[in-house]
């Protein structure tokens, strides 16, 4: 559905996108993570047509997105990072606007509006102006305007930033439902557990490129977890050991004669992946960034 190849975008002397490659298939949720300034939002803006890249290619559903912007935007549902709503316009009217712009009319538009309101738990506030809603409700409205009309490609740029647990749960459920219905979803976030909940393919961006891509299991397979052992010893009440073989490491500890009070094993997660890749890239060789493709 979405295929980006070697996208480059320069602002002055800085390459915000520097050979950015990414694909998202129909039915796939791809979680795009990375440090601030890695190029995530710029990539979303390129796909949306707000920013024109300086080099590279981009296809959406077979259309050359750099030549057929209008045709591509008909296929998109976009929820940008910054909240952008009309404060005096009701939630329902927001959805009617975006549904109408997506080509829905009459009863189809009204039915779709009602469906999305229910899906994101916005029905109780449907007729209230967006400006009086809570932050979490506004986030849901913004996501709803992207999802109304069931676009085949969803671009959600940090849709749960600052959101409460109810909002987060509703949004994740809606994203899962969209993917199950066949939509391709690009989801950027700093909150990594969401990607676990979504069972998303993870793409890690750094300095304008995607440096790692795969499932959470693939990407964290070779990373150490952590063995936490508590002792009844005031001098050393707890020991934390990085470990790729917790059983062997625990056996060695017991063989040393120490008796633990409790044992906890933490498997490697996306946070560990993020830290390990950041650490690897902080050791630059001659100023060049090494590609790590897992």
């Amino acid at each position: 559905m979405l295929a980006a190849e070697k996208l480059v975008k320069r602002y002055g002397a800085r390459n915000v996108l520097d050979g950015f490659d990414l694909t998202v298939a129909p039915g796939e949720i791809t979680g795009l993570i990375g440090h601030n300034g890695a190029g995530k939002t710029t990539f979303v803006e390129v796909v949306t047509g707000l920013v024109r890249p300086d080099a590279g290619r981009l296809w959406v559903a077979g259309h050359d997105a750099l030549r057929s912007g209008s045709a591509v935007r008909r296929l998109l549902g976009v929820a940008p990072q910054e909240l952008a709503l009309y404060n005096r316009v009701s939630v329902r009217e927001h959805l009617r606007l975006f549904a109408g712009l997506a080509g829905l009319r009459g009863r189809r538009r009204d039915a779709e509006t009602t469906r999305v309101l229910d899906e994101l738990h916005l029905a109780p506030v449907a007729d209230r102006p967006a400006g009086v809603l809570s932050g979490g409700q506004r986030r849901r409205v913004q996501a709803a305007t992207a999802m109304v009309g069931s676009p085949p490609l969803l671009l959600l740029d940090e849709p749960t930033a600052g959101a409460d647990p109810e909002t987060r749960a509703a949004l994740l459920a809606a994203v899962r439902a969209r993917a199950e219905a066949g939509a391709a979803v690009l989801y950027t976030t700093h909150y990594l557990p969401e990607l676990v909940d979504l069972d998303a393919t993870v793409a890690l961006a750094r300095a304008g490129r995607v440096i790692a891509r795969g499932s959470q299991q693939e990407l964290t397979r070779d990373l150490p977890g952590e063995l936490r052992v508590a002792f009844d010893d005031p001098a050393e009440p707890e020991l934390r050991l990085p470990t790729t073989d917790p059983g062997a490491d625990l056996a060695a500890l017991l063989a040393s004669g120490r008796t633990p009070v409790s044992v906890d094993v933490r498997r490697p997660g996306l946070d560990d992946l993020y830290r390990s890749l950041e650490a690897a890239f902080s050791e630059r060789d001659g100023g060049e960034v090494r590609d790590v493709v897992r």
């Binding site: 952008a84 404060n87 712009l101």
Partner: peptide
């Protein structure tokens, strides 16, 4: 309100 970009992101 940054809604201009939202409109530009539609068809």
């Amino acid at each position: 309100g940054r809604t201009w970009d939202r409109l530009r992101g539609t068809a």
